[in-house]
Simulated scan of single mutants.
Amino acid sequence: MKQLVSILLLTVLVVAGSYKVEAAGFKDVSKDHFAYEAVMWAEEYGIIDGYANGTFKPNATITEQQFAKLLANFYELETPYGKLKKQTTTANWSDEYYNRLASYGVPFNGYFDNNLRAKAVKRGVVAQAITHLAEGKRGLNDSIQFLLDYFISTGQNPQYEDRDLQKFFGVSNNVTRAQVVTMLHRMDSINLYSISNDAEEIHENANNISLNTRAQNGLNQLDKKMQQTTAEKSAWAATYSFYYKWGKGATEYNRRDAIISNATSKSFDISMTTNDGLEAGSVEGTATITSSTKAVMYKSSNGNRCVMEFERLNNALKVTEVDCGAERSQGTNFSGTLKRQ
């Protein structure tokens, strides 16, 4: 159990000759509200905030970025080194929370796009995000079952019980602020604060995978029904990967991952990770487009010399490293042909 550092001051008001206790000072959460105890608990420990007019809006639909803040605060996720390179480059109040979640590879849609962050979060995304941190990487059905087994959440459509788990749970339904806080309160009641081994391993990042790649892996972990993407107009913009297991040992493999974003007619940003079993490296920078299918990068965002040539193939990206030794271990390189994901 975490140390409790906040003290809740209950406001007692006289209303129509009777006393009405308001949860944490929120005018719209009375003592008889189903989420009263959950809201009071969450405000006391700094997990939630209300609005400037003194309300909590318990029935309002929660956005993904609002849920991201709640989840990051509940688990007290650590802030990573570096920041995400987004497709929408404008700074956003939720950047801090998405950076922290990306460090643990949590399944979310809005890592690279402020517009996706502002959309209502679906129950299926909530299930996968919570389960990833509490239990480990799981598919949609296993994530739903985890929430049901631990009474963190319940189904919404009883007519589908024992027939269709996803319809029973209501994976595509929106979630209210009160419902999310109630889930977190139930997690608190069973001391579900330990972060899963899967999430911790991603955060420890022994293979030196870039923050953008870890975020993309989290997004890819979402069930296809739950994924929301904003397509870029550029033919360059995409995620590309290569993986080859050449032996039975844990380190006998080769892997390359590249994310191209913020593409214009003249340039694009690239985040790339290489791993050859024991050796690894990552680089971020901006490449200049030299023709309809070719581009070149001369230095990394760190200011190091890093010359790499890129060729856009049919559903693939060919990468040729000319000189980028300052950004990686000497036992590996960035060259390879990566398949568009």
Score class of each variant (00 low, 15 high):
Asn315Arg: 07
Ala178Tyr: 01
Met187Lys: 00
Gly303Lys: 12
Phe168Leu: 02
Lys122Ala: 04
Glu232Ala: 14
Ile259Asp: 02
Tyr81Ser: 11
Glu201Arg: 12
Phe151Arg: 08
Asn115Met: 03
Asn217Cys: 07
Phe146Asp: 03
Met183Asn: 11
Glu22Val: 15
Lys318Tyr: 05
Asn304Val: 02
Thr79Val: 14
Ser196Val: 06
Arg256Val: 03
Thr61Phe: 06
Gln128Cys: 13
Leu317Val: 08
Asp276Gln: 08
Leu8Trp: 01
Lys245Asn: 10
Ala24Thr: 03
Asp257Ala: 10
Tyr193Met: 04
Ser300Thr: 02
Met308Asp: 09
Val126His: 04
Gln145Met: 09
Gly25His: 09
Ser153Cys: 04
Leu184Tyr: 00
Tyr193Trp: 13
Ile270His: 10
Ser153Glu: 13
Ser265Met: 13
Phe74Glu: 00
Tyr51Trp: 12
Ser261Thr: 07
Asp113Leu: 06
Val180Cys: 03
Ser210Asp: 05
Gly155Phe: 10
Phe26Lys: 02
Val171Met: 04
Val121Leu: 02
Lys245Ser: 09
Ser329Ala: 14
Gly277Asp: 07
Arg117Pro: 15
Ala206Gln: 09
Thr79Glu: 12
Asn304Cys: 10
Asn208His: 14
Asn109His: 03
Asn141Asp: 15
Glu321Asp: 14
Pro58Asn: 01
His132Pro: 03
Asp28Phe: 08
Ile62Trp: 05
Ile260Pro: 03
Glu232Asn: 14
Tyr150His: 14
Arg255Trp: 13
Val181Leu: 02
Glu135Ala: 08
Ile195Met: 04
Tyr104Met: 01
Asn73Met: 01
Gly50Lys: 11
Lys57Phe: 10
Ala52Leu: 06
Ala42Trp: 01
Lys167Asn: 09
Ile209Ala: 10
Val12Pro: 06
Asn254Leu: 15
Lys167Gln: 10
Leu147His: 07
Tyr160Leu: 15
Ser329Met: 14
Val322Arg: 12
Met40Pro: 02
Gly170Phe: 14
Gln179Thr: 04
Ala60Asn: 15
His185Asp: 00
Ala231Asn: 03
Ala178Asp: 11
Thr176Pro: 04
Ser153Ala: 11
Lys83Tyr: 12
Ile259Thr: 03
Glu78Cys: 04
Ser301Arg: 11
Asn220Lys: 08
Gly281Val: 07
Ile202Met: 06
Lys294Arg: 13
Ser6Phe: 14
Tyr45Cys: 00
Ala237Lys: 00
Val283Pro: 04
Lys85Met: 14
Ile190Val: 13
Ala235Asn: 11
Pro158Gly: 00
Ser30Val: 15
Gly17Asp: 11
